[in-house]
Design a protein around this nucleic acid. Structure first.
Lengths: 200, 200
DNA sequence: TACTCTCGATTGAACGTTCTGTCAAATAAG
DNA sequence: CTTATTTGACAGAACGTTCAATCGAGAGTA
């Protein structure tokens, strides 16, 4: 029974599934144990001090939502007609990944009732993404590719434009009924954005 | 003890607070009872068959997010430079209202784990708002005030542009750190949107 | 090889607590 | 007196967590 993946990881995976599906309160130590294929809930306490610690360990395991945003240098000078669709595609690809999707649901769902977690997500993800975009858009204004404007606002506007389409995939399936495809949305949205900000 | 507000309403109010703060699983019948000033949890079962029914009753009580969108006729022919900022302001006003804010947190938080609830919210709110916008934007294209384009996409884009700013008020307080005010954001975002869609 | 010792991994059972939901009795209202 | 409201007490189940006992692989010894 020499598993390549050790028990700790099995438990973490099972806990992730359970927390994502039922939330922190809804998932039980027993259900996590049985999902992990261990016969006794007690084993979980051999690896983690308590349920809260297991939850935090799950968050840490899946936390590094690494994105191309990590090294901004390569993007900075490339034109927005190229870069913005790439960002949008990367975003939709993340949303299309089932694991990422579960993670988003888990974090967002719990964040509603855990201000501390919300603060962490806001700082680790939201602020960082917007920060990158603000930098990039400022640079494009400098380069004369976009007209001068408030990049705090345009950064929000750009990521925001993608959100309803993403929400249609994650949560509100009814939004898919009008059949708008990701690529169509990217094209139109980026077009509106760039036309709206092109130099006079 | 002849309260103006009857017991049922007291219980509903208390349940709303508790569910919003702790979620369905986190809120207990006892905590709801004591928040409602009721001395026995048993009384709750006199008015509601079980916890689930109480939860549904809470949702129904606060459900009618009535918005100006209900009678679209009056908006349809007015120009987007007027109408879009009004919609944006109405949206931010809703978000600024503490009760609405709690309701959003409650519904979104539970929707992550209740596909059926997510479906309902999607249909009752998201699809309806987008539907109204699609209709309005189509009309503006007809009137020659906007260039022809895919309104499924532009409707998503417009509501989406507002979401990060709203999220900064509801959830991710760190987003407020760059100090962007609602009115500033509305002005820039609407400007991008209209410039991006103005007839050639 | 055979035997024992050790120690972490794993288990079933159980503890105390808390939860939802029930009930018969007490109280208030008409 | 009759009916509706409100109560405390509690049953039954599920929860997180603890614990002593068992298992199994490896080290040491003969």
């Amino acid at each position: 029974m020499a598993e390549v993946e050790d028990r700790r990881s099995q438990i973490l995976d099972a806990a992730f599934e359970e927390f994502a599906a039922k939330g922190f309160k809804g998932a039980t130590i027993k259900s996590i144990a049985s999902e992990a294929g261990v016969n006794s809930p007690a084993l979980i306490y051999h690896y983690f001090p308590d349920k809260e610690a297991l939850f935090n360990a799950v968050l840490e395991t899946h936390a590094p939502i690494r994105s191309a945003i990590e090294n901004p240098a390569s993007f900075m000078d490339r034109p927005p007609e190229e870069v913005l669709p790439e960002i949008a595609r990367a975003y939709f690809a993340t949303v299309a990944n089932p694991t990422s999707r579960r993670m988003m649901k888990l974090m967002l769902g719990e964040a509603m009732r855990r201000p501390q977690l919300a603060e962490m997500i806001g700082r680790a993800t939201a602020v960082r993404v917007l920060g990158f975009l603000k930098g990039y858009l400022s640079r494009q204004v400098e380069l004369g590719r976009l007209r001068p404007h408030d990049v705090r606002s345009s950064a929000r506007a750009f990521v925001g434009m993608l959100i309803p389409q993403a929400a249609g995939k994650i949560l509100f399936t009814a939004l898919r009924e009008d059949g708008l495809e990701d690529e169509e949305h990217i094209e139109t949205a980026v077009n509106i954005f760039l036309e709206g900000l092109k130099p006079k």
